[in-house]
Amino acid sequence: MLNKFSLYLSENPTLRYWIVRPEWVAVILLIISIISSIQLSPFFADLAFIMDSATPYVEYGLIAIILTLIIISGEIDLSIASMIALTAVIFGTAYNAGLGMPASMFIALFSGTICGLFNGILVTKLQIPSIILTIGTLTLYRGIAQSLASDFSLGGYPSWFIGIDYRYIGIIPIPVIIFTVFAIVVGFFLSSTIYGKQLYLIGTNPQTAKYSGIKVNRIKLLLFTLSGLVCGIAGVLTTSRLAVARFNMATGAELEIVLMVMLGGTYIFGGRGNIFGTFIAFWIVVILRAGLNVARIKIESQLTILGAMLIIAIILTNYIYSKSQK
C-alpha cells in the first residue's frame, strides 16, 4: 500500500512536490499543540491571549526568517543572539550619551550591519566555515556588549518608546504585525523572485551555482549583513519591550531561533525549506512556551523540551528529505 503510494508519487512529481514536505509536520504539530493547549486551559481558545504570548518571541521570529534564508543557502549564523544584545547595548549607550532617539536607533542598526558584514567577510573571503566562525563571534559580540554595559541596565528612554508590545491594532500587538508582514514580504521574495530562487540553487550545489554565473559569495555576504541588520532591529525592539538594555539579553536565544527554522522543515545542509514552515514553527514555539508556562513548568526546565525538539526536528527533516529524493 505504502509502496504503491510512493510509486504513484514518483510518477507524479507535481503531486509529490506538494505532499512530501517537512513543513506539513510543522502544520500537524501546530494543530496538535493548539488542541492540547485548549484542553489544558481555556485561555488558548482566546486569540488575544495567544497574540499576547507571541510578543516576546517576535524578535526571535524576525531573525528566524533571515536565518531561514541563510540556512537555505548552505550557511548558518549562530552569533544572532549576541548581536541582539550588542546592538541593544550600543543603542542604550548611545541614547544615554545624549545622542537622541533617531541617531541612537541608526547607530544600533548600523552596528548590527557591521557585525553581520564582519561575519560575512570572514566566511566568504577567508573561507572559514560559518558554523565555526559564528561560534567565535558569538563570544566576541557578547563580550563587547559586556565590556560596554558592564552589569548595568541601560534605561531612561522616553515613554513613547517603551512598551511596543502593549500597542495594538485591533487585538493584534504591533510586534506581531511587524513579524507577519516581514514573513509575508520575505516569503514572497524567496518564493517568487529570481534572487530567492538563486538562494536555493546556491544551497543545493554551490559549485554548479558558481559555474552558472550566480554570484555566490556576494549573495552570502549580503545575507550575513542582512542578518546583522535584522538583529539590530530586534535589539531595539527588545529594548522597547523590556525598557532596558543589558549585555545578557537573549542569552541562549540561538537555540530557539535555530529551532524555529529547523521545526519549519528547512534542511540543515541547505537547498530546501521555506518561510511558511518557519512562520508556522514560530507559532508552535509560542504556544508550546505558553502552554508550558500555564502548566507551571519552570522556564529553565522547558529547555529540555526545546533541546530535544531541535534534535528530533533535524533527524525527522533529514529523514523526510532522504525519502522524497528517491
Binding site: I131, I132, G307, L310
Partner: peptide
C-alpha cells in the same frame, strides 16, 4: 548516527542537559 554537524547537535543537548539540571534540582 545521523550525520548532523556536531555544533548543531550539541546546541540542542546544551539546552536539553541544562533543562535536566533544573528538573533534577527543582531549581
Amino acid at each position: 548516527r545521523f550525520n548532523v554537524h556536531s555544533i548543531i547537535v550539541t546546541l540542542g543537548t546544551l539546552s536539553l542537559y541544562r533543562g535536566l539540571v533544573f528538573i533534577v534540582s527543582g531549581g
